[in-house]
Design a protein around this nucleic acid. Structure first.
Lengths: 218, 218
DNA sequence: ATCCATTGGCTAGCTGTACTATCCAACAGT
DNA sequence: ACTGTTGGATAGTACAGCTAGCCAATGGAT
């Protein structure tokens, strides 16, 4: 497969593929001559994975590169790949040095995680994300106690333990399993978010009138 | 309150506040003289809401402006405000003109929503987001059938119907209720996503060894 | 054997987003 | 009267994610 066919098969423009090659997201094709390289099925799959992480998962290019190099590293365990993906997903947090409200929120986040009995790396950036959300809710005058957020934790836990684990365990090769893990982390996150908004709209239509007036066109 | 106090109270730099004023995200203060304006509690709350939508919800400025003008429009019903927020959250979709795989995915998304009995506007961009996610999963060779996604739908529905509706109904004034609605849509979405990743990491630690090796530092 | 479109590799430019920086004149408080 | 802040305006910055153009070397069609 040459680059033009790769482009046609994936829907990604050639200059963009060249860009991904430059950025190290996509491994180079097999050079058959000075100005000729051959791409395979692997490149196509990789390209689709990149677009999935980019368009559905909204990950920046730099984060995608990190995730992919973890995926490609056969030394890493599943748990380590997942950790890398989680690190990459989390926004590169600006530090909150000595901010009292911040460290208090961070404490509450840590206590909540401990209270749920979850085993989470003490340095996981996800902890910071939770703290940030709790802090923000508090500043907006909304309930951000462990109790108010418990339903979210329970829903997440049930989903992961009853459904996602099974999906990953069903995978065969390491490559398949790792992809299922990464896609599961990123794309299923979007799926859940979308489902929640759909359920919200549906519930809203039932409660606050509906029918006559739709939202104004953008 | 002058602009410097508003800045100190909110943690947002003065030039950024000026920028928000220019962009119409923040209403102008009350002019007391040619070079003096007074800001109030309302401005502080609005600023916090902007930062919440920006930092936690990751909404672009243009989307925030739309959401806020819907929030401020007393003509709009709750359902309409929610619709506006949903429109603003959804990425401005690039059109897929006549793409067969796309329209097939969109059909499957529509059928899934119908099958769940949800009342969702036929033009809601959320439908496109679901279709996009299903299409992507399919291209990655992962199950994207209604059955595979049902657990997400059920979790979302349970969460919304058992928890979020109550939170919104408990609000007093329209302004409070509308804010609870918007924040609920955006920030609680992040909360759920974060919870899911935490639950995932915890489950992963339990299943795929752990302890010794952490994810490599970024 | 000879074209000429395609390819890989390179550098440079573009678009959009979210800010920052600088300037200036009009004040307000001392 | 002085000094330091404020509002308003314009211009510039930094980053992300492409996109465009060029060039010499092919390699399949004629």
């Amino acid at each position: 497969m040459r680059i033009s066919q790769l482009s046609a098969a994936s829907g990604v423009p050639i200059p963009t593929i060249k860009y991904y090659l430059r950025e190290g997201l996509l491994p180079a094709g097999e050079q058959t001559a000075a100005t000729r390289a051959e791409y395979g099925e692997r490149h196509l799959r990789r390209l689709r994975l990149i677009r999935a992480l980019l368009e559905v998962g909204r990950l920046p290019i730099a984060a995608i590169r990190k995730v992919l190099s973890a995926v490609d590293d056969p030394e890493l365990s599943m748990h380590q790949v997942l950790g890398t993906a989680h690190y990459a997903i989390a926004p590169t947090a600006e530090p909150h040095p000595g901010d009292d409200r911040w460290s208090e929120a961070r404490d509450r986040a840590d206590r909540m995680i401990a209270g749920l009995g979850w085993r989470v790396d003490p340095d996981a950036p996800t902890r910071d994300e939770l703290a940030q959300a709790m802090l923000t809710l508090g500043e907006l005058g909304m309930p951000a106690t462990g109790e108010a957020l418990l339903p979210y934790a329970e829903a997440a836990m049930r989903l992961v333990s009853e459904h996602e684990i099974g999906t990953i365990r069903a995978s065969g090769t390491r490559e398949e399993a790792v992809q299922a893990l990464v896609v599961g982390t990123v794309v299923h996150g979007r799926v859940l978010d979308v489902m929640r908004r759909l359920a919200q709209e549906s519930a809203s239509a039932g409660i606050f009138g509906d029918g006559t007036g739709k939202a104004p066109a953008p």
